[in-house]
């Protein structure tokens, strides 16, 4: 089957134009990254010295002690010789924050996909779209593209900015560039794209059952629980996101995303969409 790429880009461009004009959609995409990229790192790096926290205060924190005690040896080695503040910064911002970054591809893709799929139905514009010459698959791919590309672009952009902030703010502390750590590469470039696709496909399926953008977004947002699971796993020492573990988790995410995408493509048919729109 021939795919008209100009149809796909037209749909993606239109959807992004609409997202840009929906404050409920783009505001969370601005605020949440700013908290993770600027507020938390700067607070972690600058507040402890400012309030006169001593080395003992920092390293005798029971949670941090438990985290350090359960760390795999390779992680521990990377922390050897660090001053208490640098150690705390590296643990918190280098290891602890890593799974939190996976929220971005999920959040961005589900917001845009909910706006794109459920929003189209909510605003009663779907039928006109179905009367265009684009095939079912082209409509689906155009909307997936609209969700995936900005989700990945924003996630990677956030990672880049996080890298800049951490290195700039922690330059004196570490005596040079210290971020990103190797464990971040599979998270950002392997798991994140998989999660963006998973978030998009899940939202397509959820949108079929939910009549509004907000309803679809809120239901899809429960995917963030996956990330919370990684975070808790790492905090309790059950699961450390090393490079190897990251690659394996990524593979699992891609498999689930592929299955969900297959189901979503199968369900994305004009006749079904019309029935959904009527309900």
């Amino acid at each position: 089957m021939k795919i008209h790429w100009n149809y796909l880009t037209a749909i993606a461009r239109k959807d992004l134009l609409e997202v840009r004009q929906n404050r409920a959609a783009w505001l969370p995409m601005l605020i949440v990254p700013l908290i993770f990229i600027l507020v938390l790192p700067l607070a972690t790096i600058f507040i402890p010295p400012a309030i006169g926290a001593t080395a003992e205060n920092l390293t005798q924190d029971t949670d941090l002690e438990a985290f350090l005690a359960n760390m795999p040896p390779s992680f521990k080695e990377s922390l050897e010789g660090l001053e208490p503040v640098a150690l705390m910064v590296k643990v918190m911002l280098g290891y602890f924050m890593a799974p939190m970054f996976l929220i971005f591809p999920i959040m961005f893709s589900t917001i845009i996909a909910a706006e794109s799929f459920a929003g189209e139905r909510e605003r009663k514009t779907l039928e006109a779209l179905l009367y265009t010459a684009a095939s079912d698959l082209e409509l689906f791919l155009g909307k997936v593209l609209a969700a995936m590309l900005p989700a990945l672009g924003l996630s990677w952009g956030s990672f880049l900015l996080y890298t800049v902030v951490l290195n700039a703010a922690g330059y004196n502390l570490f005596g040079g560039l210290w971020f990103p750590l190797s464990t971040w590469w599979p998270l950002i470039f392997w798991i994140s794209p998989g999660l963006a696709l998973l978030g998009t496909s899940a939202t397509v399926l959820i949108s079929a059952k939910t009549p509004t953008f907000m309803g679809a977004y809120q239901s899809s947002a429960s995917l963030v629980l996956v990330v919370i699971g990684f975070l808790v796993g790492q905090a309790t020492g059950v699961l450390y996101l090393s490079v190897g573990v990251g690659m394996i988790i990524g593979l699992g995410v891609w498999v689930i995303a592929a299955v969900l995408t297959g189901v979503a493509v199968g369900s994305f048919q004009r006749s079904r969409l019309l029935v959904q729109a009527a309900n």
Binding site: A10, T125, A128, Y131, T132
Partner: peptide, 28 residues
């Protein structure tokens, strides 16, 4: 074919020109 649906089904956040440009592209 051209279809005027029962409700106008326009993208209300887009301008008239943007609406036409979008549908024109999807009609090849």
């Amino acid at each position: 074919t051209g279809v005027l649906t029962e409700t106008p089904a326009l993208y209300e956040r887009l301008t008239a020109r943007q609406n036409l440009a979008f549908f024109g592209q999807l009609m090849g």
